[in-house]
Design a binder for these strands. Structure first.
Lengths: 343, 343
DNA sequence: CTGAAAGCGCTTACAG
DNA sequence: CTGAAAGCGCTTACAG
């Protein structure tokens, strides 16, 4: 770098973005003092401080994040890693995290893993390299090994229900067992006895919903066999086929809203009436539920609250406290797909 | 920092994350050489290079991003600023950008502005502080003044149609005039003459669609007055009211899928048949369009391609080329909300 | 209340 | 092909 452009042998020639040195020169003080004044140290005479602030303002000075982080050894920034950017469920949680982060003066950066475990761990590493002080992983897809490795370096909180959570990692999830129970009890309360389950992925959350479906059916003494379907079309087909129509379900608890919506569409396509021929309960209470006709009854997870809790846990962990395991309670929102003549 | 913890007077005691100095010591070379070897400089003897790589690997060395960026003066990272994280349209574009970024070796970080202009500009500043080499703004909501200020410091590309684009800023948008024309021509081709428009926000994109709606109606010599509604309920009401039913529209071009979905729901709630009583065309071709019954005919914007183009434009600008103005062509996807008895 | 100096971990001419 | 040195912009003991 040539002298002519940036520095004389014993002087400083400003060019490009102003630095702390430019401010110091213009204010006629040392650069350490500028640093102290800028970050509001108590040991700076008020008028000096004000003067420095004014000069900085005039020069359009902005602190260089890299230099500050390098010198301080931390960033005041947390990372949010989403499994899937296209999922309203995930982005709602992210917004809960960000809102809570803002209130405690932390900034947040976002990345996502395209629903791909490889990509997820790559991103996890990337966020560490970028200097996140802690990371919230909104995904159940990251394996325990990777989580543990990351947790050895910095605080990690997972929102979701992974296969296993190392106990160095904090976690927040919703009570899937209760959610499934609410769904089945709602349908049974409406008089349904042949209640089927439309299962989701083989992930722990879906497995928990499935298990609780069986338990609740048994508890309510509903007739065996408990029918479980893996696709909307198989279910609709069973209802139309004379061989099985007599024992086909009259109500379905679907593992999530997206699957419920596909079933909703397949049922209407087959000429079935909802809820008269088939009642449907979804899970997640996404906006989709209110756009379908009839609207979809669904189990609501308090996504915003889950995000908040995750952030507060992370802050506690940054402060040296041990990770926790938080479970929040879902509730059922009843709509037209189970209650006739309602919105 | 105490000598005992990190450094002896003329030695280096490793602690915490390994640095380039640790690698140099273990490999018995200078730290400059390590730096060169790590970044694959051609001027390092292959076996030396391999040796250094091995040592780095063993030590679990990871380059410190802050230090690297500070020394290099750039980050190899671009920022993506979304207006709204909850919009599938925005996140699809983001994924197009990221995919393209990956192919040219750039990493990307994401932030969003909760549909709020204040928040958007704050985030824009934040990304600059974080050291993004360039930023793609997926939003039409940022005012030209803020865009121009940012563009004075680093390359900026906007995906969307802002009120005005400073000519220091690149932009990519879809041809709204063509999109609206396709919608109206499609409906006219099906025999509709009383075609209404359900308008969107007062933003340039919506205004362009509205203007093109009028132009196309005139070009096709369809009867005046051209009806424009601002809400789904007003429209459905007009159809049900005996005073206006005779002249009420039989088809609607809605400014976006979300509004179209609300109209779809309101129409069904009012007992209208789609498309027999009311045909509907949306805009954006989001996943929602395929989940409704009947499915929604919609104008498709090539979101992935728009993201790609934005990224490539940004890369060109980083290379010193001037910003461009890219306009991509939408197309119509016909479905059940306009074509009876189709899916 | 203020300044000089060393350090954060890396890169990059420069000289051999 | 390799090393010593200065620098990126900031922070933080340390000494006055």
């Amino acid at each position: 770098m040539g002298l002519s452009q940036t520095r004389a042998t014993n002087g400083h020639v400003s060019r490009g973005k102003p630095t702390i040195i430019d401010v110091a020169q213009h204010a006629g003080v040392s650069k350490s003092l500028v640093s102290l004044a800028l970050r509001g140290s108590s040991g700076v005479k008020p008028e000096t401080r004000q003067h420095i602030l004014n000069v900085a303002q005039e020069l359009g000075y902005r602190s260089n994040t890299w230099a500050r982080n390098l010198a301080q050894g931390r960033s005041g920034m947390i990372g949010i890693l989403l499994n899937d950017l296209s999922s309203a469920y995930h982005t709602d949680i992210a917004q809960g995290i960000e809102a809570a982060a803002t209130t405690v003066g932390l900034s947040a950066i976002l990345t996502h893993g395209h629903r791909d475990e490889e990509a997820l761990s790559a991103r996890l590493g990337h966020m560490q390299d970028l200097g996140a002080d802690g990371i919230i992983v909104v995904s159940a897809a990251l394996n325990p090994q990777h989580l543990a490795t990351a947790a050895a370096r910095l605080p990690i909180v997972v929102v979701g229900r992974p296969a296993a959570v190392p106990d160095t990692v904090g976690s927040v999830w919703n009570n899937d067992e209760l959610g499934a129970r609410l769904a089945v009890e709602h349908l049974a309360g409406l008089g349904h006895t042949r209640i089927a389950h439309l299962s989701g992925s083989p992930r722990p959350a879906s497995r928990a919903r499935l298990a609780s479906f069986h338990t609740t059916m048994t508890d309510l003494a509903l007739p065996e066999p408990h029918q479980v379907f893996h696709g909307p079309h198989a279910l609709v087909h069973a209802m139309g086929d004379p061989a099985t129509a007599r024992t086909a379900p009259t109500a379905v608890f679907a593992s999530n809203d997206r699957r419920a919506a596909k079933l909703h569409a397949a049922a209407l396509d087959a000429g079935l009436r909802i809820p008269e021929d088939l009642a449907i309960v979804g899970y997640d209470n996404t906006e989709l539920a209110t756009l379908l006709r009839p609207q979809l009854t669904s189990i609501d997870q308090p996504r915003h609250e889950m995000g908040q809790r995750a952030l507060h846990m992370l802050v506690d962990m940054l402060g040296g406290q041990p990770p926790r395991r938080d479970v929040v309670e879902p509730r059922l929102i009843a709509r037209g797909s189970t209650i006739p003549n309602s919105a």
